[in-house]
Design a protein around this nucleic acid. Sequence first.
DNA 1: ATGCAACCTCAAGCTAAGTTGAGGTCAAGC
DNA 2: GCTTGACCTCAACTTAGCTTGAGGTTGCAT
Lengths: 145, 145
Amino acid sequence: MQANFITIGQLARRTGVAVSALRFYEEKGLLDPIRTSGNQRRFLRGDIRRVSFILIAQKLGLGLAEIEEQLASLPQGRNPTLADWQRISRQMRVEIDEKIKLLNRTRNQLDQCIGCGCLSLEKCRLYNKDDNLGLKGPGPRAVLD
Amino acid sequence: MQANFITIGQLARRTGVAVSALRFYEEKGLLDPIRTSGNQRRFLRGDIRRVSFILIAQKLGLGLAEIEEQLASLPQGRNPTLADWQRISRQMRVEIDEKIKLLNRTRNQLDQCIGCGCLSLEKCRLYNKDDNLGLKGPGPRAVLD
DNA sequence: ATGCAACCTCAAGCTAAGTTGAGGTCAAGC
DNA sequence: GCTTGACCTCAACTTAGCTTGAGGTTGCAT
């Protein structure tokens, strides 16, 4: 009777994910196994692929909540197919491109900083780059007097 | 009084960092103010620069523990000077370069994946490109290594 | 019918980088 | 000397992604 259902331990061995993590994924809505009469989880073989998807998406920097959204957007909660994966991975590519751009900008500014060494909150372009750590109100003034 | 000492509130206003965060930094060993007879903290003016250093290093992806190490490596626990900053920032540049390379590789593999869609843990080069992304976004990514 | 590995739930703990709140004290201006 | 705002400590809470442990049950092989 090995056909369609596998235990949580088998899924763990097949994916390299800890049993506790799989239970955690279920809790978060990323997996939805059926139960035996004795309340043990039984997963579909296709869930191996579903877990693979989770792992790969995580590598690309998506959080579990975002992954859950992607999975939930699939019709009838089915596991991701080739077309789904292509759609989602194209979307992820955009995000990776943005991260690379951000890091490149940071690096360029760091190069300027190496020569500068000002450590000034007011002047340092690296520090003032984009997000404003509460720069409202009185705000930080020059570091050097 | 133009004295050498400033209160925690002044330091907070000058750096844009919340008072609670400054106390937290002290707890972590990044700051070490003296105390008045009434047990209030008094910081050196130079600590404004020290906090700037912390903020900039954080922007570059260092955790507080790493920053603390860098600061602790300074002779006599003095605040960072131009030369210190240059040494440390050159070191950080190397790390940023590595992150960029890793992301570029990931992106290239993702491009292959878009055409492939295998989602196989055995075959997917994206998943099996084993070195864990040094990309530690928000939250601990502790266990996937 | 028994042994035992694998399973179950629920609660608590961990890391990171702080924030929020309660309850109390200090310092300085009037 | 009183009031008030800034300060103090300590504890608990936050998000994310899990792990660990206690204490109990199931399912399969012998």
